[in-house]
Design a protein around this nucleic acid. Sequence first.
DNA 1: CTTCTGACTGACTAGTCAGTCAGCTAGGTA
DNA 2: TACCTAGCTGACTGACTAGTCAGTCAGAAG
Lengths: 198, 198
Amino acid sequence: MADRKTEILEATCRVIAREGADGLRMGTVAREAGVSSALLHYYFDTRADLLMQAFEHADVKADEAADQAIADIPTAIGRLQRLLLIYAGADAVFRDDWLLWVEMWRSSIFDERLAESVRRSSAAWVEQIQGLIEQAREEGAVSAEVNIEDATQRLAAVVDGLGLQVLTGTATHDRAADLIVGAIGNELGIPLNARSTA
Amino acid sequence: MADRKTEILEATCRVIAREGADGLRMGTVAREAGVSSALLHYYFDTRADLLMQAFEHADVKADEAADQAIADIPTAIGRLQRLLLIYAGADAVFRDDWLLWVEMWRSSIFDERLAESVRRSSAAWVEQIQGLIEQAREEGAVSAEVNIEDATQRLAAVVDGLGLQVLTGTATHDRAADLIVGAIGNELGIPLNARSTA
DNA sequence: CTTCTGACTGACTAGTCAGTCAGCTAGGTA
DNA sequence: TACCTAGCTGACTGACTAGTCAGTCAGAAG
C-alpha cells in the first residue's frame, strides 16, 4: 500500500470498474490516486501499459482471494462449488474482480497483446476447475461415466455466461447461484444430495 | 440498400465488428459508407444514437437470419440445436452478428439506455429457446423430470460462455459445437441418440 | 556544507474527435 | 422563369486527451 506503483494500479482498477477499460482516462486515474498524471507516465510508459499491468494485478489479486476463500472447505466438491459461485460474480464482494475480468476478456478481442495474457489466465482457471473435479472423483463424488474435460469446459462456460447475465442485470445473484449448483450436479452426475452453499 | 440511412447503419455494424463499439469513430463510419461525416449527423443526432440504432438494426437482422436458418428443420430438438450453434458463434458466418451482440452486451454495463434494449433482446432469445424446448417435450424428446426454466437458462448461459471463448480464441468452433450438443443432451435428459448437426 | 538522485509536478503540445454551419445541387412546384 | 426543399458536403471549432519536459524538492552520499 505504501508502494506508489501499486496504489496507482489499484486506482486504475477502481476506475476500470466504474468506467470500463475504454473509458479509462489518465487524468481520472491520476485524480483517483491523488497524484499528477505525469507520475503515471513516470511508472508506466503508455496508457496501454498501465491498462495491461492493472489487468494482471487484478488477476493475481482475485486468484489469491479466491484461493483463500476456498482454502478450508473440506470436500473438493464444496471447494468447486464455492469457486464457481465466486467467479460467477454471484458473490457481490467479487463483482468488481469479475467486471475487471470481463473487461480484460473483451478488450482482448481487439488487442492481440492482451489476448495472450487472457489465454494464460483462462487456461489456469480451467485447470483449477478440472483439478477440483478430479479430486472430487477420487473422493467418490463424481459419477464414473462423466467425461471430465467436457464437464470442466461446460461448467466454465455456464459460469461465464451466468456471470455476464448478473453483470448486465439479466439475472440475479441468487438465481445464478442456484443454476450453478444445479449445473454442477448435472455435469458431475450427482444424484441431488451433496449441498452446502457456504 | 438504396436507402442511405440503412447503408450507414450497415457500415456502422462493419466498423463495430472491426474496431469494437468504443473504437467506433464517426470519421471511420463515414469513410466506410462513402459519405461525409456531416451526413451521419444529418441522419443521427449523436454518436450514441448511431451506435444504438446500429445495435438494434443488427439485432433484428440476426434474428431474421437465424429464424430463416432453422425454418425448415423438422424436429424442435433439431431447430434448438441449430439455433444454439448459430448463437454461439460456432457458425463462422454469424461471427460478426455474435460479436456485435457481445459489444452491445458489454456496452450496456455502463449505459443504462442500452441496458434496457439488451434486456429486451435477451428475454426474447431466452423465450425462443424455452419455446423450442417445450415443443421438443411435446414431441417426446425431453425427459419428464427436466425443469424447463432451469434448463433454458443454463443452456443460454453455456452458449454465451462458449461463444465468448470462441470469440477470444480460447476454444475452437468445432469444440464449442460438440460441447453445446452435449449440453443439450445433458440438460434435456436425452440418452445419447438424437443427433444431426446440419 | 555540496552534490547527486529518485520521486514528483504544473504547464504545455500535438493531435483527435464529435458536432456545427454555411452553402451547394438536383428535382419538384407554382 | 423563379422559388423551395431534401439530401448532402467541406471546412471549421471547441473540447478533450496522451504524452512531454523543464524544473522542484527531500533526502542520501560524500
